[in-house]
Computed example of a mutant assay.
Amino acid sequence: MSSNGRSTFQSASYSFSSSTVNGETRSYSESTYSDPSGTRIQRSTQEPGQAPRNERVEFDSAGRRIQDDRSTMGRIEDVTDKEQSDRDREYEERMEDEYAKKEGGA
């Protein structure tokens, strides 16, 4: 305790893990910082072939979760991978049709 009666406690931690299976790497990191005003947690995960996902969580000094504008707006979903996947599938189907025509007409 400081001379004004307020706590000056601070704590920080960081962890990181990574694993590779069949050439595909997954990673996870988390950093936590606590002081008298509350606790802030930053997490980052990355799955093979995916963009990193970041999450930030904050709690006030009483342990209540603090909501910010970003967290109340809902999760942002990356639809580019799905759109590309749909286009790739359509392309493959067209190519299969073309090969079938060539093999049938030869």
Results as ranks from 00 to 15, higher is better:
Met1His: 10
Met1Gln: 09
Ser2Gln: 10
Ser3His: 06
Gly5Arg: 07
Gly5Lys: 07
Arg6Phe: 08
Arg6Leu: 10
Ser7Arg: 04
Ser7Phe: 03
Phe9His: 07
Gln10Lys: 11
Ser11Ile: 00
Ser15Phe: 12
Ser17Val: 07
Ser18Leu: 04
Ser19Asp: 06
Ser19Phe: 01
Ser19Ala: 06
Thr20Cys: 02
Thr20Asp: 01
Val21Asp: 02
Val21Ile: 06
Val21Met: 01
Val21Asn: 03
Asn22Ser: 01
Asn22Tyr: 01
Asn22Lys: 01
Asn22Thr: 00
Gly23Leu: 00
Glu24Thr: 02
Glu24Gln: 11
Thr25Ala: 05
Arg26Phe: 12
Ser27Cys: 08
Tyr28Gln: 10
Glu30Ala: 14
Ser31Arg: 15
Pro36Met: 05
Pro36Phe: 07
Ser37Phe: 12
Ser37Gln: 14
Gly38Glu: 13
Thr39Ile: 14
Thr39Leu: 15
Thr39Gly: 12
Arg40Met: 15
Gln42Phe: 10
Arg43Ala: 14
Thr45Cys: 09
Gln46Glu: 08
Pro48Gln: 05
Gln50Cys: 09
Ala51Thr: 03
Pro52Asn: 05
Pro52Met: 06
Pro52Lys: 14
Arg53Cys: 08
Asn54Val: 11
Asn54Ser: 04
Arg56Trp: 00
Arg56Ala: 09
Val57Trp: 04
Glu58His: 02
Glu58Lys: 09
Glu58Ile: 07
Phe59Pro: 03
Phe59Val: 03
Phe59Arg: 08
Asp60Ser: 06
Asp60Tyr: 04
Asp60Glu: 04
Asp60His: 07
Ala62Leu: 12
Ala62His: 11
Gly63Glu: 09
Gly63Phe: 09
Arg64Phe: 14
Arg65Trp: 07
Arg65Pro: 04
Ile66Lys: 05
Gln67Leu: 13
Gln67Ala: 13
Asp69Lys: 14
Arg70Lys: 15
Arg70Gln: 13
Arg70Leu: 13
Arg70Phe: 12
Ser71Asn: 13
Ser71Ile: 11
Ser71Gln: 15
Thr72Ser: 13
Thr72Phe: 05
Thr72Asp: 09
Thr72Ala: 15
Met73Ala: 15
Met73Lys: 14
Gly74Ala: 08
Gly74Asn: 06
Arg75Ile: 14
Arg75Lys: 14
Arg75Gly: 05
Ile76Gly: 07
Glu77Asp: 11
Asp78Thr: 00
Asp78Lys: 08
Asp78Val: 03
Val79Gln: 08
Val79Gly: 02
Thr80Pro: 00
Lys82Thr: 08
Lys82Phe: 09
Glu83Arg: 05
Glu83Met: 06
Glu83Trp: 02
Gln84Trp: 02
Ser85His: 03
Ser85Gly: 03
Asp86Val: 06
Asp86Cys: 02
Asp86Leu: 14
Arg87Cys: 00
Asp88Thr: 00
Arg89Lys: 10
Glu90Pro: 00
Glu92Gly: 01
Glu92Leu: 05
Glu93His: 02
Arg94Ser: 03
Arg94Pro: 00
Arg94Leu: 10
Met95Ile: 10
Glu96Asn: 04
Glu96Leu: 03
Asp97Gly: 06
Asp97Gln: 11
Glu98Pro: 00
Glu98Thr: 01
Tyr99Asp: 02
Ala100His: 05
Lys101Ile: 08
Lys102Arg: 13
Lys102Phe: 10
Glu103Gln: 12
Gly104Met: 12
